[in-house]
Structures are given as C-alpha cells and as structure tokens.
Design a protein around this nucleic acid. Sequence first.
DNA 1: CCTTCCGGTGGACGGATTGACCAGTGGACC
DNA 2: GGTCCACTGGTCAATCCGTCCACCGGAAGG
Lengths: 157, 157
Amino acid sequence: MGIDRLDGRLITLLAREPRIGVLEASRRLGVARGTVQARLDRLQSNGVIRGFGPDVDPAALGYPVTAFATLEIKQGQGVDVRAHLSGVPEVLELHTTTGHGDMFCRLVARSNADLQRVIDLVVGFDGIVRASTAIVMENPVPLRIIPLVEQAAEDTD
Amino acid sequence: MGIDRLDGRLITLLAREPRIGVLEASRRLGVARGTVQARLDRLQSNGVIRGFGPDVDPAALGYPVTAFATLEIKQGQGVDVRAHLSGVPEVLELHTTTGHGDMFCRLVARSNADLQRVIDLVVGFDGIVRASTAIVMENPVPLRIIPLVEQAAEDTD
DNA sequence: CCTTCCGGTGGACGGATTGACCAGTGGACC
DNA sequence: GGTCCACTGGTCAATCCGTCCACCGGAAGG
C-alpha cells in the first residue's frame, strides 16, 4: 500500500489535465501504455483513486456562500442528527469530531440572507443543542491533493 | 446561469459512473449525442463543471487522520500565513472566515502522533497566535454535491 | 400570420483511442 | 540456476470522439 514516483507523476498529470487518455499519459510519462493502464487499474482497486467524478462548483450553481458550522449534539441523538443533516442538500459534508458530542459541517447558501434559512434548516432539529457558524470570506487554498500526493510519492512508499 | 433538469441528470449520471463517455451518456439520458456534447461544453465553459480530476483518498495514501484547525492570525500577517500554509502539503484547504483575523484549515496526518508534527509545522510560524484543533472521528456525510445539483435543477434555473 | 433564432435530432465521416492480448527482457529474490 | 514480476513494444478489432450536415419544432418579435 502506497504509491511510488511514477504513480505520483501519473496522478499529478491526470489532475492537471483530466481530459488526456491513457495513451497520451503514457507518452507524457515516457512509459508504455500498458504500464499506465496497469497503474491506473491498481490505483483504483487500491482505493487511492476513488473515481473521476465531475468537479462541480457550488458558486456556479447559484450557491456562492460557504460556511462552516460547529454543532453541539444532545447525548444519544447522533444517529438522528446525521439522518437529518444528510437530507439537507446544502450540507456538503459532515464530520463528527473530538469533543462533547460535537459535529462539524460545511454549508453553502445562495446569499448571506439565504444562509439564515439554511442554518435554521440545520439547527431546527431536536437533537441539536447549539450551533456556531463561521462564514467563509476567502479561500486562499482551495481543496487540493497534489502536494500531498507528491510528498507521498517522495517517501517512496 | 443555472442548470435545468437535463443538466442535473447529466451531472448526476457522470458522478455515479464517471467512466462512461458522451455516447453512452446520451443513450442513458435518452437524448442525442450532440445534445450531451453541447451540454457538457456549456457546463464546462460556464464553470459549473470545473473538471474531472482524479478523486484521491488521503487515507489510501497513508494519511488516515483528518483534522480541522482554527487559527488566530496576527494583524497584517495574513499574506505571509497563507504563503506558509500553502507550502505545507498536509494542509488540504485553507479559508479565511468572519472573525478576528481568523483562518480555518483542513489537515491530514499519518497518525494521531504524526498530527502533532503537522500542527507544529502549521503553527510554527510567526504570524499565528493560537490554534485550536478538532480531530475527525467519523465522516457520516462525505463531501458531496449531487443533492445540491438536484435541488438546483429542480429550481429550474 | 410570417420570419428569425435556437436548441435538439438523427445521421455521417475519418482519425484516434481503448481494452485485450502476446512474446521478450531485465531485475529481484530464493 | 530458476522463478516471479513489472515493464516494453507490438498487434488486433471494436468503439468512441470531434466535427460536420440538413432538418425540425417551438418561442420571440415584427
């Protein structure tokens, strides 16, 4: 389990230019096409590459506001809260974190005003005691993975 | 700007089965191939679909621990802190949020012990006054976009 | 009512890529 | 020496891609 330098270069290449196919990738990497195919198969069955889903921008969908909310959960209500939040489209992800039954989620909304509606949707549920929200103003480092891939490849796993 | 139901179905289909091509997608959706191609082109130039980058799992790379950190930044040090954090591979994303020069980032590490190293890396910088970290235990709702896409499509933008 | 515009349809074309094979080679390991 | 494994370089038929085209219907505007 782990990736070598060729895997790292392959992932980086695919991340930079997702449109290229196996053949073009093999040309760029200077290896045989079969090698790239084998690597890709392995990376996917490994679970290193989960898939190639479309990367959708919520802002372009009309949801330009992002916020993070910390939720305090009533004891034993965890399961219900999860079900509730997974039913809210504006909840893009949900984590349970260390602490006193705390959860943590990423929200999007159509506007700052609309964010109030979303928060009401999220908090308007019995198991949630309290919520504190932080609105995102800038995103200096968008979600990325390449630097980590390169580091993992350097560590010659 | 916005997406209709066909766009929504197309995005959902691509998210579920990224391997399928334009031709197969047109068959599934019951429309002509040219239509799917035109829609895809439009969605991409719109910026709704940013791309089809590989979805890499940090855990499979050897970084199974995720944490979120809130950073308090010294006045006027924002730019330097961003540069510093963007140079740390374990920082997967960084946001500036409402509050007193606060920032917010997602971290990964090889283990709970290794997380200490990462945090030291992150915090060991002049402009950062204080950091509070929450370790992720579970991830009931992984980062997702489809429910939002479907809602946006229903709203018949 | 007529005209124009626009998105979708169904079809076609050649070039390119894919997935699947194969024998051969070199290094690592026992 | 023998075995295993990954990579190479090549072939094959099947498929898909990007790009054209003529045609149609509805919507909007005159």
